[in-house]
Simulated scan of single mutants.
Amino acid sequence: MRGLHYEWRHVAALRSTWVLLSVIATLNLAAGLATPFGLKPGSAPSSWSMATTLQMDAVALQLPLSALLLLPLATGSIATELTRGSARTTWLTLACRRTAYMSKLLVGGAIGALTALGGAILAALSAGVCLAATGHLQPAWTHTLPSLLGYVLFMTCWPLIALSTTVLVRNRTAAVLLLVLWPLLGERITGLALRLVPGLAPVADWLPFSAGRAAMAASADTLSEADRAMTQTLIGSDLSSAAGAAAFLAFTVLCAILGTQAYTKRDVY
């Protein structure tokens, strides 16, 4: 508990934390308010369109916009130690490197989960009110829940991956570039290469961020055949949402283990 309290105070004391969270909240609110635009009078938005709104266009952008905005915060606690040499203060305060790192992981995961849930609730409330005020029907909210759960899982895991990547490469800029470029380009190129090799095509479905997108795409089952094919291309994986969630969670655990080993055994930060 002492480690969690210490890490939370460290994160909460940064003005950038509240600026980033405010920006994400504002964007969620705006996304909800924009829901009625383009709808026919008296119609309701589809479950998939609402799922993408709640997830901040995770599939279209290849990563949730909220995840990209959280990167400075997700990498911040490690980056501060790297640039300011403050790790020794943390270790002296908590008397254990493993405790310090686990506290960073738990606080980061909690912030990611709460950001996803809070933002989704804000978007849903603003969308519901705006739809009612403009005479539109409400969407099938229950059909968006599986995709919302996948989104919360992704956002819970995202700070853990970001922290561990920063520890492993020991450079914040390199970590951010890797976390942005790999899901956008690296996995696409790797997936295409794997599909060209006989017998390795199924491996492409299990690439971590493709699996993460599959976990968030449960509501895509409500799409027409043509729209589902296009969405599947954007996802880059044929896994079910449950299999995608399991694969992405396993990748996160692996990253956390490797990050813990690097943090506890390296001499100087």
Rank of each mutant, 00 (worst) to 15 (best):
L185C: 08
P139S: 04
R188Q: 13
L117I: 13
R213P: 10
V152L: 15
A174Y: 03
A204V: 10
G135P: 09
T144G: 10
V129I: 15
A132P: 02
L223W: 06
P139V: 02
P146H: 08
R170H: 12
N171I: 00
P159C: 06
L178D: 05
R172P: 00
G212L: 01
S219V: 12
G119I: 03
I189Y: 11
Q138N: 03
L192A: 11
S210N: 15
Q138S: 13
S210H: 15
V176G: 03
A214T: 04
A120L: 04
T173W: 01
Y151A: 07
S126C: 11
L177Q: 03
V176P: 00
A133F: 08
L114K: 10
S224R: 04
I161F: 06
G118Y: 07
A140E: 15
M155I: 06
M216C: 15
P183E: 04
V180A: 04
V167D: 06
Q138C: 01
V169H: 01
V176C: 05
T190R: 01
W182D: 10
L163K: 11
P208C: 08
M216W: 06
L149E: 01
M216D: 11
V129E: 08
L196I: 01
P198W: 10
I121Y: 00
L200H: 11
T156Q: 12
D221I: 12
T166V: 01
T165E: 00
L179T: 00
V203I: 14
S219I: 11
L223G: 10
L153A: 15
P183R: 13
S210K: 13
W141Q: 03
G128H: 10
R195S: 09
G191P: 01
V176T: 12
Y151Q: 12
T142V: 14
V180S: 00
A175W: 00
L185P: 02
R188A: 10
L177Y: 05
R172K: 09
L137R: 12
G199Q: 05
G119T: 05
I161D: 02
V129Y: 12
L200K: 07
E187N: 04
A123M: 08
V180Y: 01
G191K: 01
A124C: 03
F154W: 14
W206T: 11
A211T: 07
T166E: 02
V152I: 15
F209C: 02
L177A: 12
L192Y: 08
G199M: 07
V129D: 09
T156V: 14
L114Y: 02
T190I: 15
R213L: 14
H136P: 07
G128K: 13
L131Q: 02
L145P: 00
A133M: 14
A133D: 13
A193G: 07
A217E: 04
A215R: 12
L184I: 14
T190Y: 00
L117H: 03
L194V: 11
V129W: 13
R188F: 09
H136S: 14
L145I: 15
G199T: 08
A193K: 08
P208V: 10
A193L: 14
A140N: 13
T142S: 10
P208R: 11
L160G: 14
W158Q: 10
V169Y: 00
L207V: 07
